[in-house]
């Protein structure tokens, strides 16, 4: 009887996914460096981070939502709405700070609304955010009347400025991941997010306020969408309803590559970060190797497929 109690397997923690990604990144980097030495320079790495800052910040939010076992596919259109809304305020002559503040608030509000309905009515989050995705896009159209909202050169520092030679978007990007790491690893909120995603009923029976956690997760996601929107708006200098379109799918892809299963309950800040870097790396690599941008989508698709298959195989071994 003791023997059966001793029957366990070696730990396969989410670290293995990060490890796998690191190796993949190392291999791809070496090959690219060999073909084009310009790849392995600090400048190029900073470029990669800079170019993927918006995706990275949004993916951090998606990590929280997906670890809790939910989805938010409305964030692309929400970015469209938030950026056009803020830009239209500037066009109307309001101060840039007010515009940023209200835009940020809108993002938090929009996502919290998603979370509230999902948590209270138990509507599947995929369906709910499919609905709000359309609503946010419609709002963006209403706000702009379909016309590009230009900031006329204001508010460029966050998106296009540099500090000590480092592109400014890298700061909020890295800060977001430090925050995400701390939340997931060192706070009880993080624990509860994992618990809700891992087994909502067991979490509830252990005294976790699952309703509150779900709403909180979406609110945090909203804050990160707001931040991503502002970085993007500042970088572009203008906004259209289609600004940010497709961001939700790339964010989900990065999160999945980073090792969060679609059912939630697992994942890490490091995993998603590496997922984002990997996706950025692929575009960068193909650019440096002079491969047409058309192929990039195909390669990214393949990487997503491989990442998911690998993590599924890991899951299958357990059974």
């Amino acid at each position: 009887m003791r023997i059966s109690a001793l029957r366990y397997r070696k730990s396969t923690r989410s670290l293995t996914q990060s490890f796998f990604l690191l190796i993949l990144i190392a291999v791809m980097s070496s090959i690219t460096t060999f073909l084009n030495p310009a790849f392995f320079s600090l400048r190029n790495w900073l470029n990669i981070l800079n170019q993927n800052a918006v995706l990275g910040i949004a993916a951090a939010g998606a990590t929280l939502v997906m670890i809790s076992g939910n989805f938010d596919i409305s964030i692309g259109s929400l970015v469209g709405f938030v950026t056009t809304f803020a830009a239209s305020l500037v066009v109307k002559g309001y101060s840039i700070f007010l515009a940023i503040f209200l835009g940020f608030l809108m993002a938090v509000f929009g996502c919290t609304l998603n979370g509230f309905v999902v948590a209270v009515t138990k509507t599947p989050s995929f369906i709910m955010t499919l609905a709000t995705r359309s609503i946010f896009y419609g709002l963006a159209l209403v706000v702009t009347g379909g016309v590009t909202q230009s900031l006329s050169g204001k508010f460029y520092l966050l998106g296009r400025g540099t500090t000590l030679g480092i592109h400014n978007p890298i700061f909020p990007f890295v800060a977001t991941y430090i925050l995400l790491f701390l939340i997931l690893r060192y706070t009880r909120t993080g624990r509860r997010i994992y618990a809700v995603g891992g087994n909502e009923e067991a979490a509830f029976l252990s005294g976790v306020n699952t309703l509150k956690i779900k709403i909180l997760v979406y609110a945090l996601n909203g804050a990160l969408v707001g931040l991503a929107s502002m970085v993007l708006l500042s970088r572009l200098g203008s906004a259209l309803p289609s600004t940010g379109s497709g961001l939700e799918l790339r964010a989900i892809a990065a999160v999945v590559i980073g090792g969060v299963p679609l059912t939630g309950g697992k994942g890490s800040a490091l995993g998603t970060f590496l997922g984002v870097v990997l996706m950025g790396l692929i575009s960068n690599m193909l650019n440096l190797l002079n491969i047409s941008a058309y192929y990039q989508e195909i390669v990214i698709g393949l990487v997503i497929a491989i990442a998911v298959i690998v993590s599924n195989l890991g899951g299958m071994k357990r059974k």
Binding site: Y186, A195, G265
Partner: peptide, 30 residues
């Protein structure tokens, strides 16, 4: 398995899951 444990999480996290709800401490001392 269905209602007692978070199977995808560690012994550590499962063991303290009820206790963390009894205090006001947000930061965990691992």
């Amino acid at each position: 398995q269905k209602t007692g444990l978070i199977l995808s999480r560690s012994v550590r996290e499962n063991t303290v899951l009820a206790t963390i709800n009894l205090t006001r401490r947000e930061w965990l001392n691992l």
